[in-house]
């Protein structure tokens, strides 16, 4: 139809490469593809309208993640379920499962778990845990960047990540036991 494609703008150059990242985070936050698609689109459009406030030359990733998370909290979470509050007892219980390495000396069980199970386990985490796992362990952000994105102190990020991983490992271990990949060992 149109003759030549429009020239790429600075916004497109800096923001669009992060589309996959935004989609992955949105998908884990919302838990459903349709909502994730809408959340990414909203994020990009909000970023576009706020483009003047973005400091050129800084990393757009953190800026976009902050916009995405705020949109999620304001517009999406409310529509879905009540926000999942961290069940401290459950978290503590899992955190005490700290002899897991001894149950899998070969380190094979994570390898044997299918991706869908792992994603389901991530999605089953309380939101406060899920978001740090996604930002840290899926996307590889450092503590400082996560703290900035979530608006919490670095110490909070560290302790949430610790407890999130323990809970996730506990869930995956249960899957592995159910699937017969590992045998329940030890007296817990």
């Amino acid at each position: 139809m149109s003759s030549a494609p429009p020239a790429e703008t600075a916004f497109e150059r800096d923001v669009l490469p992060h589309m996959d990242l935004m989609y992955r985070v949105a998908l884990r936050l919302t838990g459903e593809a349709a909502a994730a698609e809408d959340l990414v689109q909203d994020t990009v459009l909000k970023a576009f309208r706020a483009w003047d406030s973005f400091r050129q030359g800084t990393n757009a990733r953190g800026w976009l993640l902050t916009i995405l998370r705020n949109s999620f909290i304001n517009d999406y979470r409310r529509r879905r379920r009540a926000p999942a509050l961290v069940d401290l007892d459950v978290a503590e219980q899992h955190a005490r499962l700290d002899d897991q390495p001894g149950q899998d000396p070969e380190g094979e069980f994570f390898h044997s778990l299918v991706d869908d199970r792992i994603l389901a386990a991530i999605d089953g985490l309380p939101e406060e845990f899920r978001e740090v796992v996604v930002l840290s362990d899926v996307e590889g952000l450092g503590y400082a960047q996560i703290a900035e994105t979530l608006g919490v102190p670095v110490g909070t990020v560290k302790s949430r990540l610790f407890r999130a991983r323990k809970q996730l490992q506990g869930t995956l271990l249960e899957y592995a036991i159910e699937a017969g990949i590992v045998r329940p060992g030890k007296d817990a």
Partner: peptide
């Protein structure tokens, strides 16, 4: 191994 599995899946 845990982190590798998370990465692989997500």
């Amino acid at each position: 191994n845990f982190l590798a599995a998370i990465q692989r899946a997500a």
